[in-house]
Amino acid sequence: MHTKIQIRLNGKMQTLTVPPFRLLLDLLRDEIGLTGTKEGCGTGDCGACTVLLNGKPVNSCLVLSGELEGADIVTIEGLKIGPYLHPVQQAFVQEGGAQCGYCTPGILMMTKALLDENINPTEEEIRFALSGNLCRCTGYAKIIQAVQTAAAELRRSYEEFPSSQRRGGCATNKMPRSH
């Protein structure tokens, strides 16, 4: 039982033949081989599997492949900008926002979604946006700090290069990384 879908994955158009009941998370990990997206609970309660679906953060463990015709999907593997770390990634490195790192891909995707909408979030807005991403290691302090650092860096770069704002520093408009 398979169905043919065309999706844009990390900026690259792909035609896939997939079982329609397969969850997006399993599709990414098992069928496409992108293991950066993690399963923490499988029930939408932890956010580890967060990806961007048509620009919006969703739990990929609750999305069926059969719903994906025409979808635009960005995963952690699509976050880098060419060979460079995305400012969000850079900030998490700098501030120690990752410990075991297992929740990190989901948190980075959520952070990107937040900063795409709001380039100058308050601490409260950051905490609110990330409340669906559980982390057992950090106590969230360094994650919040990293988001603030990333936001400041993005604001700085938009001032310097106003044209980059429309792209939101997003890899989907760039050349995709090969895997």
Binding site: T35, L85, Q89, F92, V93, A98, G101, T104, L108
Partner: peptide
Amino acid sequence: TRVDAEEKVTGQTV
């Protein structure tokens, strides 16, 4: 900064 940070923020850690 952590020596394993870059691979963790890019989803490459196995």
